[in-house]
């Protein structure tokens, strides 16, 4: 589903940009509806961790994830051809002697997510930045995959 949607993006031109925006809003609405239908939202862990937001331009893609409480060295990003894999872990808080939890909503453990982009990735120039618990990865399109304009000369 995810892969399908993104690879379809390859053919979307600017006039379709509004369409894509509405589609992603629709997707968020569907997601919320699913949560309502499947019962208790607090217990609902329907989606994969971390949730991702992706934006595309002609030259690159921006991939964002909320990774609160995770150190940069605990995040591993790898790139192959046209896909990006995000791995890492968030350690569980270790209770000291005499401490007990009243509430525990923050997840801990390992995560792994892969994302296929609609272009070949320029792997040497991928930049990742973690700030205030938000990870942003800029994934540039490989030079060989960029749109080339061919001039037509009059004969």
């Amino acid at each position: 589903m995810l892969l399908q949607r993104i690879s379809d993006g390859r053919f979307a031109d600017n006039s379709l940009s509004n369409f894509w925006r509405s589609l992603s809003e629709l997707d968020a609405a569907r997601h919320n509806l699913n949560r309502l239908l499947t019962g208790d939202s607090a217990a609902g862990t329907s989606s994969e961790f971390p949730a991702l937001n992706v934006w595309l331009s002609e030259d690159d893609a921006l991939v964002e994830a909320e990774l609160a409480g995770i150190e940069a060295e605990d995040i591993d990003i790898s790139v192959t051809n046209d896909s990006l894999t995000l791995r890492g872990s968030r350690p569980a808080y270790a209770l000291a002697e005499g401490e007990r939890f009243h509430r525990q909503e923050r997840g801990s453990g390992q995560f792994s997510r892969s994302l296929q982009l609609p272009f070949r990735i320029d792997a040497d120039n991928v930049e990742a930045n973690l700030s205030k618990g938000v990870l942003q990865i800029r994934v540039p399109r490989a030079e060989s995959d960029k749109l080339k304009k061919i001039m037509v000369r009059p004969a």
Binding site: E66, Y93, G98, K132
Partner: peptide, 22 residues
């Protein structure tokens, strides 16, 4: 924000995930 709350003998601690906040 998702939160954890734990209690020890002399305090309560609240941890809240607020990505993007400093």
């Amino acid at each position: 924000p998702r939160a954890d709350i734990f209690e020890s003998q002399d305090k309560l601690v609240v941890l809240a995930d607020m990505p993007g906040v400093d």
